[in-house]
Design a protein around this nucleic acid. Structure first.
Length: 804
RNA sequence: GCCUGUGUGGCGGAAUUGGUAGACGCGUACGACUCAAAAUCGUAUAUCCAAAAGAUGUAAGGGUUCGAUUCCCUUCACAGGUACCA
């Protein structure tokens, strides 16, 4: 059989018949299966894409056969730095590069037989799409959720652009690996931190995998504690945030951030100005450098001339500068309790600051800090040296001390979050222009809705400028405009959006992709309800998912989408590694190109292999041998056709095996057990192979069950035995009656070890089981001269005889 | 460091609520077919023992249980995430 011909034949059939086109049909139950739409890179489709697209494709095909109205769409996430870099490098306009790459991707996807509804395809770079991304940005602005602020931003000197905290994780540029610098710039920001609590709570309304939920929770980074006002001797005050108010009596100093506001305010009173200034400057440099390992030492200096007063007992304590305190987290100042915090402990050691123990317990060790992690699990832990709170347990003390401070009006219970506002500006050409106009009279004014989209100008110059301004800033025809409000001369915003913008709501657009009145109609969104299965890489479970959820929650709060969470289940697939067990990369030379595999083995074999290679959620290495085995399996299925006969060689257990296969596959589909779906199909095939002959219906059943994973070959074989296309068929129903067996193999254990097996009737009693068990010769020999202590009989399974 | 995940034959991996560990596939060996090879088919394949019987065995150690790959504790290794977050 010629795989190529068969594959293109059926691909054409599906295309011609629009087999996968889906329309909103109230009579059918909707089911929305989504895979992360790819960034169409110049490298083409990766075998990793094939893994997740095949899995979701199989799910989509199966659900269609079960009668669901399945939405399985595909589109392109084509804005962003990589597309622009690629364009610059290859001297081709990003628009053209994207067009070319999409063509390649789409062709590859078609040769793999993915059942996408191509009528819903779009790219984030289509003006018809980014019009609505801009429209939604204006909503953010109107609701005071978008604002422009001068902030310290992560600046990549190589890419010449601003990076979000997420993009600069680890202190290096996510794209090029260059060390990130700090730079003060005016940026558009989205008030994502306002949604921290809602984003946490919203997780309860989702069915995300636990590890995905945890990723979200960690990123949001909530901590509950107390904000405490601290007076400065001779006037002034500041606040600190702590999660360990129970240690308040142990404060021996305060530490404030060198990049914070407080030190600037205190400056006139500082005696050692030179030293302080020097340290502040050093910190600025340091944040340009690797802040991870080299600078973990507890550097800093005493701020001479000012003393703080511990609010709980009026003791005077010194203030230090230290760069381990961050200016933009909490209040930019901390209370330091060296006896009970490892960082404070180290700092105190370096700077010779006295310590004061205020909690005692069994785990106390004077050579290190007796910390939260230690004393909270220590049942003997209690306060000491803490006036009226001495002797109390930690939990009590926490409450009582907070109460007291609250009554004094100098403390508040607050939550802090690591998650900051979203830096939304990029100084790049290839992104959605931010639809704002700066008018000398009216300030920032959004572009009129009727004037959307603000199109990217068609120019040849799109490389970033050296001064960090967007390339758009050089294009006068773009910049100069009139104010939408007063009609006066004004200037257009030249920053563009990050590529996370377009991907934050694309799943909504798929529900209504051609709507030119709204980003998607409420009617359609209500029909599709939610994304039932969303699959993507683990690397996107923190950021992309968080941005998308934030975006949706904002739309929901403004009545624009039907649910606060629009994604029900999020799963992530494991990576496909090279055959050397390493991540595939050009430099390692271990990259597998799906086209080559399709050419040599066929699309069905590749699909089958990628499903069979291992646990779907885990990484798995590439193996050509295993791939060949999958081809061999398909050849076996082809060969089975010769066994098709009017009658079958009767095998009583066949119906049972068929039905348990259906049951197993149904179960596995809902648990992403794709590898065991394949193995149970192999078992069924082996069973058929053993038989003299099988009927058309037997064969048809196998073909339907295999169809979601290997759709081409199964359609062809199915046609050859005279059935109408599987794509219009129905999924077999599991019949529990058929798997009832009259007998089972009873396992007999003695003291938990298997000593015998016996085929017995399924409906015998426990007593009968025990009796038969005791009389199996081998078992009997173990029982001799021993006392039977007890017998455990599990119906339809085993008997365990416990002897002494 | 912290968080998360993983650890099962020569290899990829199964084992749905604690109940026959190693399904299925790969590889290997032998056999059939062939002048020969490939392909295909058959048989075997955790380890120890000539074989049976048996013993050992799911990273290591301990525990709970009639029974543990599965639950609990301790330790180790690997992978990913995160990093002075108060």
């Amino acid at each position: 059989m010629n795989t190529k011909e068969i594959e293109s034949k059926w691909q054409k059939y599906w295309d011609d018949n629009k087999s996968f086109k889906v329309v909103e049909d109230k009579n059918k139950k909707p089911y929305y299966i989504l895979v992360e739409f790819p960034y169409p890179s110049g490298a083409g489709l990766h075998v990793g894409h094939v893994r997740s697209y095949t899995a979701q494709d199989a799910m989509a095909r199966m659900m269609r056969l079960k009668g669901y109205n399945v939405l399985y769409p595909m589109g392109w996430d084509a804005f962003g730095a990589p597309a622009e870099q690629y364009a610059i490098k290859n001297h081709i306009h990003p628009k053209e590069a994207v067009k070319e790459n999409i063509k390649t991707f789409k062709k590859q996807m078609k040769t793999l037989g993915f059942s996408f509804d191509w009528d819903r395809e779009f790219s984030t770079t289509d003006p018809e799409y980014y019009k609505w991304t801009q429209w939604q940005f204006i909503k953010f602005f109107e609701k005071n959720m978008a604002y422009k602020a001068k902030v310290n931003v992560n600046w990549c000197p190589n890419c010449k652009t601003v990076l979000s905290n997420e993009d600069a994780a680890g202190g290096v540029c996510e794209r090029c690996g260059t060390k990130v610098e700090q730079k003060e710039k005016e940026q558009w920001m989205l008030r994502m931190s306002d949604y921290a609590e809602d984003l946490l709570k919203g997780l309860d309304d989702t069915n995300f995998a636990d590890r995905v939920k945890l990723g979200q929770i960690n990123w949001i980074g909530k901590s509950t504690g107390v904000e405490l006002d601290v007076n400065i001797k001779d006037g002034g005050k500041f606040s600190i945030f702590t999660t360990c108010i129970e240690t308040v009596y142990g404060i021996t100093f305060f530490v404030i951030a060198p990049d914070g506001k407080l030190i600037k305010e205190l400056m006139p009173r500082v005696k050692n100005k030179d030293e302080v200034m020097k340290y502040i400057e050093e910190t600025k440099l340091k944040s340009n450098m690797d802040r991870t390992e080299l600078n973990k030492g507890k550097t800093g200096c005493l701020v001479e001339g000012v003393m703080a007063i511990n609010p709980i007992n009026g003791k005077e304590v010194p203030i230090y500068l230290g760069d381990f305190v961050l200016g933009d987290y909490g209040t930019g100042a901390v209370m330091a309790v060296p006896s009970h915090d490892a960082r404070d402990f180290e700092y105190a050691k370096v700077h010779n600051i006295p310590m004061l123990q205020v909690i005692d317990g069994d785990g106390y060790d004077e050579n290190k800090a007796y910390e939260k992690g230690d004393y909270l699990i220590d049942t003997t832990a209690h306060l000491i040296n803490s006036e009226e709170f001495s002797g109390m347990t930690i939990i009590d003390a926490k409450e009582k001390i907070t109460d007291k401070l609250e009554k004094l009006g100098i403390a508040r219970r607050v939550n802090n979050y690591k998650m900051r506002d979203w830096v939304f500006s990029r100084q790049r050409f290839w992104g959605e222009p931010i639809p704002m106009v700066n008018c000398p009279k009216c300030g920032w004014v959004p572009v009129n809705e009727s004037d959307l989209p603000v199109m990217l100008p068609d120019v040849a110059e799109y490389e970033p400028t050296d001064d960090g301004e967007s390339p758009l800033a050089k294009i006068e025809s773009f910049v100069n405009c009139t104010c939408p409000k007063c009609g006066g001369k004004a200037k257009r915003e030249t920053d563009t959006m990050p590529n996370w913008a377009g991907s934050s709501w694309y799943f909504l657009r798929f529900m209504d992709p051609h709507n030119d009145q709204e980003f998607a109609s409420m009617e359609n969104m209500k029909y599709w309800n939610k994304v039932d299965w969303y699959n993507g890489g683990m690397e996107h479970t923190a950021r992309h998912l968080l941005y998308a959820r934030f975006w949706v929650q904002f739309l929901y709060n403004n009545g624009l989408v039907p649910h606060k969470e629009m994604i029900w289940t999020r799963v992530s697939h494991g990576m496909v590694l090279g055959s050397d067990n390493q991540k595939m990369s050009k430099s390692k030379g271990n990259v597998i190109n799906p086209d080559d595999i399709v050419n040599e083995f066929g699309a069905d074999t590749l699909r089958l292999y990628e499903m069979f290679m291992g646990d779907y959620t885990m990484d798995a290495p590439w193996s050509v041998d295993s791939l060949r085995g999958c081809r061999r399996f398909l050849d076996k299925v082809i060969k089975l056709k010769d066994k098709v006969n009017e009658k079958r060689g009767f095998t009583e257990s066949l119906l049972a095996i068929q039905n348990s296969t259906i049951k197993k596959i149904d179960y596995d589909f809902t648990n992403m057990g794709y590898n065991t779906i394949v193995s149970s199909l192999m078992i069924l095939t082996n069973k058929y192979m053993e038989m003299e002959s099988i009927t058309k219906d037997d064969y048809h059943l196998l073909l339907v069950l295999l169809n979601p994973i290997a759709p081409h070959i199964t359609e062809e074989l199915n046609e050859m035995i005279g059935f109408s296309p599987i794509v219009n068929d129905t999924w077999p129903v599991f019949d529990p009656e058929k798997i009832k067996e009259d007998t089972f193999e009873m396992v007999v254990q003695v003291n938990g070890k298997v000593r015998g097996k016996e085929k017995v009737s399924s409906n015998i009693s426990k007593e009968e089981m025990e009796e038969i068990a005791k009389n199996i010769p081998n078992v009997k020999s173990y029982l001799e001269n021993h006392e039977i202590v007890k017998i455990i009989a599990i119906p339809k399974k085993l008997v365990n005889i416990v002897i002494k």
